[in-house]
């Protein structure tokens, strides 16, 4: 098999505050190949965002190595676009300007103004937000903000797309629509995607592999299941797919076993 695009090798992540160390990730190893779609699932606060931020280059590892294309990840960069958990749009810019900022930064040197404009509009169109392009983030709903955040990340045409609960604040219909959009995009440009989600169905529907994390502190990767359901996937048909149902069952089982109310027995050191 070819070399992985992204590999985390025995990484540990600690946060220090007032001399007290809190261990968030312990000995996490993960290889992601080009074009793969990974879902990351786990209970709240276990360290999913932290793992994603390590790949984004926003959080340094305490021990171990995070490699992209066999080079150590030293800091953030546009080839690893992030859709942040809290959307992080710049409130003083309009929806259009928020996306345009990313477009101008990445293609400004190579394309003329017309091309940049078209590219911005195209990405807003992908998430169906052209109608509100001149609104400011304060004037649109939470779900719309997330869509703009997705448009901004897609506009960067990144090698790795990092999605931190991108559909969290959306109603079921919009959510389904955006899941389809992301699936189509992934199909078409074969981007590599890491997506955090709390929704088991969403995790399985979109992913090639679902990564399940144990509870923090000292969270690790508990299990990884392969989703072999063939693509393109239809959200209604997969519900009858035996593989899909299997994956779903094992994930729900894992999450129940790691429920905070009934913590798993501590492992020997």
């Amino acid at each position: 098999m070819s070399k992985p695009l992204l590999s985390l090798e025995n990484i540990y992540v600690d946060f220090e505050r007032d001399g007290v160390i809190s261990q968030v990730l312990e000995n996490v190893s993960l290889s992601v190949h080009k074009g793969e779609f990974l879902s990351i699932i786990g209970h709240s606060g276990c360290g999913k965002s932290t793992l994603l931020n390590v790949v984004a280059g926003l959080v340094p590892v305490t021990l171990g190595a995070a490699l992209l294309d066999n080079k150590e990840i030293k800091g953030p960069g546009p080839e690893r676009a992030v859709v942040f958990q809290n959307h992080s749009l710049l409130p003083w810019m309009t929806v259009y300007e928020n996306v345009r900022l990313a477009v101008a930064k990445l293609y400004g040197a190579r394309e003329n103004l017309k091309q940049l404009h078209d590219r911005t509009l195209h990405n807003l169109e992908l998430v169906k937000m052209t109608h509100a392009k001149d609104k400011r983030p304060g004037e649109i709903s939470g779900g719309m903000k997330q869509r703009v955040g997705i448009a901004r990340a897609l506009a960067m045409e990144p090698k790795v797309l990092l999605l931190d609960e991108p559909f969290g604040a959306l109603d079921a219909l919009t959510r389904a629509h955006l899941q389809d959009t992301v699936m189509e995009l992934h199909e078409r440009i074969r981007s590599t995607v890491l997506m955090i989600t709390h929704d088991v169905d969403e995790a399985v529907l979109l992913a090639d592999r679902v990564v399940m994390m144990t509870n923090g502190p000292k969270a690790r990767i508990g299990e990884i299941v392969d989703v072999k359901t063939p693509r393109p996937r239809d959200r209604k048909q997969v519900l009858q797919d035996a593989q899909f149902i299997d994956c779903r069952r094992s994930i729900v089982g894992f999450l129940e076993a790691h429920d905070h109310a009934h913590p798993a027995p501590a492992e020997p050191a």
Binding site: L58, G77, F84, L90
Partner: peptide, 23 residues
């Protein structure tokens, strides 16, 4: 959050000053 956005986009110090810091 805004600092992170600037970092991911690799804004130059000048861009950071006018597009993030001042506003």
């Amino acid at each position: 959050d805004y600092v992170n956005v600037a970092k991911v986009l690799r804004l130059t110090p000048g861009e950071y000053f006018f597009k993030i810091m001042l506003p």
